[in-house]
């Protein structure tokens, strides 16, 4: 099993956001996590990635059999966890090229590998940027600085392509995207899929799942996963709305 979350409770500033999440993700799988706003979807993503303010008060997260709760965010990343941010951060003055080269080399160092040569790195960059249909201009720009919403999301997928994580968690990657950008992003994710990695897609809308077809759909409500099903669950949810979930949970 790649990712194993057991009875996860997470608090922010003493307020409990997640109260008992269980989730198992195996290699080769695509999972979708859906749910209404403010229900803990982004908290779950941040807790897996190790954001500091997110305090795990109970439960466990293991990745490839290792307990990751005591690991720093960078170590989790080096272990192979990637988080595609809902709001990617702008870093003026630092080019994407150098940002990625630094990241990739730190990850390689962690695994005792030699850093990429400049030539090999550039070749990789060219390959991967084609995957997300990024024009060559983008790479000379500072990380996310002055990017449109769509460009930022494309850039997240580009980074994912560069770092080749075993587990990619995409937090509302579809928000703010027009249909063309959505297709490009989804296409990128699909092309990166291998039998050895897994993707967790967090989304509010079913729309994205037309393009990234999930093996499992989980519905997160009030800090818990309340329903799990196949891709048809997303369609049913789209049709019936979140009210349907609320009523079912109450019932």
């Amino acid at each position: 099993m790649l990712l194993n979350i057991k009875d996860l409770h997470v608090s922010i500033n003493g307020k409990e956001i997640l109260n008992g999440v269980n989730l198992e993700v195996n290699k080769g799988e695509v999972h979708a996590i859906m749910g209404p706003n403010g229900t803990g979807k982004s908290t779950l993503a941040a807790a897996i990635a190790g954001k500091e303010a997110y305090e795990v008060t109970q439960g466990s997260i293991s990745f490839n059999g290792k307990d990751i709760l005591d690991m720093q965010p960078e170590v989790r990343a080096q272990e192979g966890i990637f988080l595609g941010f809902q709001y990617p951060v702008e870093i003026p003055g630092v080019s994407i090229t150098n940002f990625m080269r630094t990241a990739l080399n730190e990850i390689k160092k962690y695994h005792g590998q030699e850093p990429l040569t400049a030539a090999a790195f550039l070749k990789k960059m060219n390959e991967k940027q084609k995957l997300v249909e990024i024009t060559s201009k983008l790479k000379n720009r500072s990380v996310n600085e002055g990017f449109s919403g769509g460009e930022k999301k494309k850039n997240e997928i580009f980074q994912m392509a560069m770092l080749e994580p075993q587990l990619a968690i995409l937090d509302e990657t579809d928000s703010g995207l027009d249909i063309d950008a959505l297709k490009i992003v989804a296409n990128g994710v699909n092309k990166l899929k291998t039998p050895d990695n897994a993707t967790v897609v967090i989304t509010h809308y079913q729309r994205l799942l037309d393009f990234i077809v999930p093996d499992f759909v989980h519905i997160l409500y009030d800090g818990k996963i309340v329903m799990t099903g196949g891709k048809e669950l997303a369609l049913e949810l789209e049709e019936k709305g979140y009210e349907w979930i609320k009523q079912r949970v109450k019932a």
């Binding site: 990635a49 190790g50 954001k51 500091e52 720093q72 965010p73 960078e74 989790r76 990343a77 080096q78 990637f82 988080l83 941010f85 990617p88 951060v89 870093i91 940002f99 990625m100 630094t102 990241a103 990739l104 730190e106 990850i107 962690y110 980074q159 770092l163």
Partner: peptide
């Protein structure tokens, strides 16, 4: 956090 999440210490 964003930068560290990319594996940078």
């Amino acid at each position: 956090f964003y930068i560290r999440q990319r594996g940078i210490g």
